[in-house]
Amino acid sequence: MSAPERVPVKRTAKLFIGGEFPRSESGRAYEVLSHDGRLLAWAARASRKDLRDAVRAARDAQPGWAGRTPYNRGQILYRVAELMEGRRAQFEAELADAGAPDPRRGVDAAIDRWVWYAGWCDKVHQVLGGTNPVAAPYFNFTIPEPTGVVGIVAPPDQALLGLVSRLAPAIVSGNTAVVIASEPSPLPAVSLAEVLATSDVPGGVVNVLTGFTRELVPWLAGHMDVNAVDVTGVPDDLMPEVEALAAENMKRLHRAPDVDPFSPQAQSPYEITALCEMKTVWHPIGA
């Protein structure tokens, strides 16, 4: 007589705000289906209040994250790669469910992207900052600084690599992020949040919301305490509204280059500085 079949334990897909995993305060969730129509999970459907909480958590975490040494941030982002490597089977399964043609390649590229950007933490200043030889007795230099809290509307396809390609460069410099995950395929983002929660990334540096993009994006674009939004995943027809809302507090808007996310062109130090402010300092020289 064979042993009874073991019933697997299923994961609850929750939001990730301030280092914790709450359900939506609205009590809502939505069905996540696989590419072939199977029910994969019910994901939390974040409300505007969840978004507000996420922005608050990101703001609170921002000075601390930016205040860490670039070396320390680099090590922490590298650790994200280490932990993703350990959970790659889960990511591959989720990408397969989402219909990715080559899940293995997608996970490889996502992990390598973390490694690549981790290395930029203590190099971006050297490559894209510098001293300016002003024609007067002043020492003058320009350094990139994080802009603050960045909203990221992840692209709906490429649920993992697309997200990592937007998120990693945003937080390299010391920004904190509020991510709106891919609406049709939020589960890789939920898993990434779980990786981030168990890495050394401080709570609040990355906040992940799942839900309806069209519902959340206007609140994000209009939020007066958000400094920039990566609009890569914003539907084209929403862009005029987003741009108008962004004008209220001069939010920076940035969109991923239109290239194959697997290509080398999909990663660039300019993706980091797009979400930075350049600061120039003058100081006199004299005995």
Binding site: Y71, Q75, W116, G119
Partner: peptide, 17 residues
């Protein structure tokens, strides 16, 4: 350790230097 970490980060970015 920091030196290895730092230059590890350069290994795939040399064209930027």
């Amino acid at each position: 350790a920091a030196h290895f970490f730092y230059y590890a980060g350069w290994a795939d970015k040399i064209e930027y230097a």
